[in-house]
């Protein structure tokens, strides 16, 4: 059985908490609060949720700034720094560490993430 939450299908053996945390911009704190709000215990799996709760979760998620909304906020913040011509904006654009780290080695994460159009 597969349940669809917020347009994404999850396997019935997946923990509800992990399923919620798979959305961008929704972390452990928020997911714990959502679970508590709907009286779902932390070890519930998707398969044991009644359809009513799944609908309620989807409704709940649709009111939150997650996924593309959350990504856009991050991108806008970086773009603002870039447009202002700040050092942080420039470092983002160059794909280099932003917060004063040394760049001799170990900058893979910065290379991967720091872009003006940041996706992850």
């Amino acid at each position: 059985m597969v349940a669809i939450i917020f347009g994404v299908s999850f396997h019935e053996q997946k923990l509800v908490k992990k399923a919620l945390e798979s959305f961008y911009g929704l972390g452990p704190q928020t997911s714990a609060r959502i679970l508590a709000k709907h009286c779902i215990h932390p070890r519930t799996k998707i398969g044991s949720l009644p359809p009513k709760t799944i609908t309620a979760l989807t409704a709940e998620l649709s009111t939150m700034t997650i996924e593309s909304d959350a990504r856009r906020i991050v991108q806008e913040n970086i773009k603002r720094l870039r447009d202002m011509g700040t050092y942080r904006g420039r470092r983002h654009a160059m794909g280099l560490p932003v917060r004063g780290q040394r760049t001799k080695n170990q900058i893979e994460t910065a290379k991967k993430l720091n872009k003006v159009e940041r996706m992850a």
Binding site: A32, R33, L35, A36, K37, H38, C39, H41, P42
Partner: peptide, 8 residues
């Protein structure tokens, strides 16, 4: 307990 109420 480890349970949380709806108001967390």
């Amino acid at each position: 307990s480890d349970y949380r109420s709806p108001s967390f």
